[in-house]
Amino acid sequence: MLLSLALIFLCGILLGSLFQRLRLPALLGMLLTGILLGPQVLNLLSPDILGISADLRQIALIIILTRAGLNLDLADLKKVGRPALLMCFLPASIEMIGMILLAPPLLGMSYLDAAIAGAVVAAVSPAVVVPKMLRLMEQGLGVKKGIPQLIMAGASVDDIFVIVLFTSFTSIAAGDGFSPLTLLRIPSSVVLGLLGGLLCGLILAEVFRRLHIRDSLKVILILSISFLLVTLEHALTGVIGFSGLLAVMGLGAVLRRQRREAAVRLSLKYSKLWVAAELLLFVLVGAAVDIRYAFSMGASVILLIFGVLLFRMAGVFLCLIKTALTKKERLFCMLAYTPKATVQAAIGSIPLAMGLSCGNTVLTIAVLAILITAPLGAFAIDMTCQKLLSS
């Protein structure tokens, strides 16, 4: 495992730096590192580290979402209002509709199989989007109108909505039927996640106020509570859900509101943790990619991915109707809300593991969605933010 970690960090840094020199996103180099080191090409990564890959990716997500919360000003988010709520579900819903309309004629899929594929693809990636939005906030771009805050908040709830629908669709395909009560997991996950984050944030703020604790120990304490929150999410498998990742982000936002100076210092600590976490996340996502399926379906699947992205962008446009955003700012939001990576890597192989007939096709779509949208979306954000956003 130590050799695998060394290869992940050294090769990830090397290829990430190379792609940056080529004016491409570093994460593309990290994804390529994972593909090359993974079992499909050189097979240099230990089975032990691949076995805990999902847990390591989860830790990386916790780190970046906590950092997002520590930088999220609730007052700014409140100013955004209605669009922030719509961004949590409307773009994903319209993208799934696009998949249901386009996949049957392009790939010969049934409508149910297309719905499963749509649920896999429709989630935006916080691991790609959040770091970019944090950088925009540091540069002061779009902050006055709450654009980075809007996109960060929507990206965190978007995943919950999509995963609940994915679970429902795969249950129907497996013959388990569908219960309308399952949909209760969406609002309950959001509400209980926010309440859990609020409560933990208030408790930690009071502890930090009363006790003198070094910032490094505060980070360990926050990480430990974050792990417990995500564990609680996995433990609740019934009708009532709980979003641990949303709770983690909420915890950070409450700390910023209650202990602003401490939150600024803690955010700097988390930004240093993210240097290593980012490498682990994207290299291991790349290692999960099975490129054999990606080449087996031809150009139709690529056309499908770009087609559903247009549906998603239309959904973002609808969310921003009657807002104060300019045409350029709305275009930026449409581009920034396209990258996909972590959810697709996490659930893309589940239909295949369940023995569903659409398993190989869904996995191929998920793989190509990562390879196409993660770098292109990150590249679009970097290349257009100065031109489309004002400081």
Rank of each mutant, 00 (worst) to 15 (best):
A75E: 14
A75R: 15
D76V: 13
L77P: 04
L77W: 03
K78I: 03
K78G: 08
K79G: 10
K79Q: 14
G81W: 00
G81P: 01
G81V: 04
R82I: 09
R82E: 09
P83L: 07
L85D: 02
L85A: 15
L86R: 09
F89T: 09
L90D: 05
A92Y: 00
E95D: 09
E95K: 01
M96S: 06
G98D: 15
G98F: 08
M99V: 13
I100T: 11
L102G: 09
P104L: 12
P104Y: 13
P105V: 05
P105M: 13
L106N: 14
L106K: 12
L107Q: 14
L107T: 10
G108H: 03
G108F: 05
G108N: 02
S110T: 15
Y111E: 13
L112N: 10
L112Y: 06
A115L: 14
A119P: 02
A119R: 02
V120Y: 08
V121S: 06
V121I: 15
V121K: 09
A122Q: 09
A123M: 09
A123S: 12
V124P: 01
S125P: 07
P126S: 11
P126Y: 00
A127P: 00
V128W: 13
P131E: 07
P131F: 06
P131Y: 10
K132W: 11
K132Q: 10
M133D: 01
L134N: 05
L134W: 12
L134V: 11
L134G: 02
R135H: 06
L136M: 15
L136Y: 13
M137Y: 01
E138W: 03
Q139A: 13
G140Y: 02
L141M: 12
G142A: 11
G142E: 07
V143P: 02
V143T: 11
V143S: 02
K144A: 10
K144Q: 09
K145S: 08
G146L: 03
G146H: 07
L150N: 08
I151F: 11
M152V: 14
A153P: 08
A155H: 01
V157G: 04
V157A: 14
D158Y: 00
D159S: 11
I160F: 11
I160Y: 05
I163T: 14
L165C: 06
T167I: 05
S168W: 00
S168C: 14
T170D: 05
S171N: 14
A174D: 01
D176N: 11
D176W: 08
F178G: 07
